[in-house]
């Protein structure tokens, strides 16, 4: 099974990667500051992109400011390369840059993602770009920006701990399953974007640079390589990730995040990998019944 790299001629009439150079410069300056202050949200003058706000415009602007002719881009949504919005964003960059795109995680120099961290570990020379809807981890506890800025300035995160503790009192455990808050570099509490908490441990001391873009909220932030990223918890209620009794019905993986698929209207269920590249590669690698793997292509 070979998956060719996709290339396409660049659309005429637009600057490389759509954004004008001045906008890119402003964004690049913000990104450099973001990396220098891990986990801190840097404001930037987000522009209107040809996709709606809330549909990845932050990640798209970050990628547009990063990407060059030699890059290879992978875009995933919910872990999959083939969900509609991932397809749309990938197509946009092919038209606006002419760069190659790929579905293979290890071939990409830039991976733009919505709601997942790929299962395969990323390397030093890859950059992971997250699309972020609400960058402020304290937003649902305190709606005012002037207040949340103050709380971050003072490193005053008691509010968040109270919220998590109330969960434990009421439910016996912390009732946050995605966008689970993390402490970055022992200084800033950060929203990891709506990834399942399953993915949180992958962020800790990750080898690759992680950049986060929130277009509508006009913020970028970053986690440099090898930086501590701890999910908030309590000594008597340590952080734990989701686990499944099942393995992937397609590739047999027992270490990946599984989506539940409803197979009929009589309560039939099956579980398959959310990371489509991981799953199809494992099937290609012959981890399971070959006939079954081929049928699923």
């Amino acid at each position: 099974m070979t998956m060719p790299l996709h290339t396409e001629a660049r659309a005429a009439g637009y600057n490389f990667a759509f954004l004008d150079e001045q906008t890119k410069r402003a964004l690049r300056r913000a990104l450099l500051k973001a990396v220098a202050i891990p986990g801190y949200q840097v404001p930037f003058a987000s522009r209107e992109m040809p996709m709606p706000f809330g549909w990845g415009t932050g990640g798209i602007q970050v990628t547009a400011s990063l990407i060059g002719p030699d890059d290879v881009l992978k875009v995933i949504d919910q872990g999959s390369d083939d969900t509609t919005n991932a397809v749309s964003i990938r197509k946009f960059f092919r038209r606006m840059t002419g760069v190659r795109t790929t579905e293979r995680t290890e071939e990409a120099t830039i991976v733009q993602t919505r709601h997942r961290v790929p299962e395969r570990a990323l390397s030093d020379d890859q950059i992971l770009v997250y699309q972020v809807p609400i960058p402020e981890p304290l937003r649902y506890l305190e709606p005012r920006e002037t207040e949340t800025r103050k709380l971050h300035a003072l490193s005053e995160y008691g509010l968040m701990h109270v919220k998590l503790y109330e969960d434990i009192a009421r439910h016996g455990h912390i009732a946050t399953t995605y966008a689970y808050p993390v402490m970055v570099g022992d200084r800033y509490v950060m929203d990891p974007s709506p990834i399942p908490k399953f993915d949180n441990p992958k962020m800790h001391r990750m080898r690759s640079l992680q950049l986060f873009g929130a277009g509508r909220e006009q913020r970028v932030y970053a986690v440099p390589p090898f930086t501590s990223v701890r999910s908030l918890d309590f000594e008597d209620h340590p952080f734990a990730v989701q686990t499944w009794d099942q393995t992937c019905a397609l590739c047999g993986a027992g270490d990946s995040f599984l989506d539940e698929i409803v197979t009929d209207d009589r309560g039939g269920r099956m579980f398959v990998c959310s990371d489509s590249d991981y799953c199809s590669r494992r099937r290609g690698d012959g981890e399971t019944d070959p006939a079954r793997g081929a049928a699923a292509e």
Partner: peptide, 21 residues
């Protein structure tokens, strides 16, 4: 433009988050 984008983004797949919930 911001408002309509974010309201309408609820149309995008959220099945990973939904699975967690």
């Amino acid at each position: 433009v911001q408002a309509t984008g974010f309201v309408e983004h609820l149309k995008l797949p959220h099945y990973v988050d939904f699975q967690s919930e």
